[in-house]
Simulated scan of single mutants.
Amino acid sequence: MKKILLVTASMIALSATAASAADLAARPYTKAPPPMVAAVYDWTGFYIGINGGWGQSHDNRTVDGIGQAGSYDANGGTVGGQVGYRWQTGGWVWGLEAQGNWADFSGSTGNVLVPGGTVRSKTDAFGLFTGQIGYAWNNVLLYAKGGAAVTDRNYQFLAPGGALASSTGFDTRWSPTVGVGLEFAFSQGWSLGVEYNHIFEDTHGATFVTPAGVAVAGFHTGGDTDMVLGRLNYKFGGPIIAKY
């Protein structure tokens, strides 16, 4: 009788163990969640874009041995484009850029030396060739730039009544330039920015020519230029990097 009870108890224990094992095998497997991924924007690559904004050029017109003929600011709008390349190492970003713009920075004032006369000028184009250094916080880039600028300005004297008395024609001049900008990448390749530029043109000697072709020397004219530009760029290559 005892043997029968022992066998029965053993069979019950084995059945319970098998049932427990079956229950364990039936439990579903839960996969661990993937690690968090942070997207990091890479500023490396060629880019091309457009820009537009406002600028102001100063003109301080003087005549040697006589004095000032007029001083004023010529201002207006500008639109153009840029192309460049940037390299990013860690948070630091370096770049090279060429920019060309049409402009309409124009202004005038009365001629102090000729009552009723006018001193007038206009900047109709400029180019910037600069290097950049900046620091990026992911998709936000703050940078400084510097290099050379070329400007195309026309200086004039108008006689009383408005007739052209003399002009420098197209006065193309190279000058140093510096600037600073802030750029925000809002999608793959596309970025928006705002930029300030200063051109150190300063005053310089100039020869004016009358409509009859007579050259008149002894003048100094010109001055620095300031600009505020909005920019839209598209960058080729250098995709967003997944950082774990």
Rank of each mutant, 00 (worst) to 15 (best):
D23E: 14
Y29F: 13
T30K: 14
K31A: 14
A32W: 03
P33G: 08
P33W: 07
P35F: 09
P35W: 12
A38K: 11
A38M: 13
V40I: 12
V40L: 13
D42P: 05
D42I: 05
W43L: 04
T44S: 15
G45K: 12
Y47P: 03
Y47E: 06
I50V: 15
N51T: 10
N51M: 07
G52P: 02
G53E: 06
W54M: 11
Q56H: 06
Q56V: 13
Q56K: 10
S57W: 01
D59T: 11
D59K: 00
R61T: 12
T62S: 15
V63M: 15
V63S: 13
D64M: 07
I66D: 00
I66Q: 06
I66Y: 07
G67K: 05
Q68C: 10
S71Y: 00
S71E: 11
S71T: 12
A74K: 03
G81N: 05
Q82E: 08
V83P: 00
G84H: 09
Y85W: 15
Y85H: 08
R86F: 05
R86C: 06
W87A: 07
Q88Y: 04
G90A: 02
G91I: 06
G91L: 05
W94D: 09
L96E: 04
L96T: 13
E97Y: 08
A98S: 11
Q99Y: 03
N101F: 02
A103E: 00
F105D: 01
T109K: 09
G110N: 12
N111F: 03
N111L: 05
V112W: 04
L113M: 12
V114Y: 00
P115C: 06
G116K: 11
T118M: 03
V119I: 15
R120L: 00
K122R: 13
A125G: 15
A125N: 06
A125I: 04
G127T: 05
T130W: 00
G131F: 07
G131S: 09
Q132R: 15
I133S: 08
I133M: 11
G134L: 11
A136Q: 09
W137C: 07
W137S: 14
N138R: 00
N139D: 09
V140E: 10
Y143L: 00
Y143N: 02
A144M: 14
A144K: 10
K145E: 11
K145H: 02
K145Q: 15
G146C: 12
G146M: 10
A148Q: 11
R153K: 14
R153A: 15
Q156V: 04
